[in-house]
Amino acid sequence: MLEVQGLRKVYSSGGREVEALRDLTFTVENGDLVCLVGPSGCGKTTLLRCIAGLLQQTGGTVTLDGHQVSGPPPGLAMVFQEYGRSLFPWMSVRDNVSLPLKQKRVPRQRRDELVDKALAAVGLAGTESAYPWQLSGGMQQRVAIARAVAYEPSTLLMDEPFAAVDAQTRADLEDLVRSLWQRLNVTVLFITHDIDEAVYLGRRVIMLSSSPTVVQDEITVDLPAERDQLHTRADPRFTELRTHVYEQIQKAKRLSR
């Protein structure tokens, strides 16, 4: 379980202080898929970096499976928005996926198994020897997802992973995340600025306010577990939920003015 308690982050540089996160409290149950959505510039990425242990918070605590996060915790994998910079261009696809496992000291045979399985799961079997920059943007992000999946994390953090891919690729990747989540029994925290994406993907949606950020609202998405781009998005309940989320985000923006 992931618990965020009173999280606060203040950036200070040159005597100026900017309060990015004011007071964030929420929990993500094991095996849940939670989407965080908020207006642009609301500190989503700051929040995710604090949870990933990449950034030291100013106040409050992040607890993952009972342990306080003070550096990158074990059992956590992260997928970045900037796939082109997150993958290492000097390594083949296979080496990119395999390297974190090597660092985790997974024995070679098991490593190869995990890499093959992960690449097959994201539909990239056969590209092992290619370099990331030889692939399209959507395929590169699949490699990054495969790398995270092969790591066998209990928690998967995704930082606006599909913001930089085209709309059709994006729909495919959304379905990929849903199916991986259902198959792998992993906890997913997915950050996005796209309201439709949040409602389509999430089992819960947490709405954030503008910066300095607090939790604005929270809903449970009571859509059926089996979702598909065509029918789910046409479901009247989907429309209701997205309207609600949209209104909350608009309210958050108004309040901040």
Partner: peptide
Amino acid sequence: IADETARSFRF
């Protein structure tokens, strides 16, 4: 980002 990736995987 490359460095954060490496850190997040506990290199």
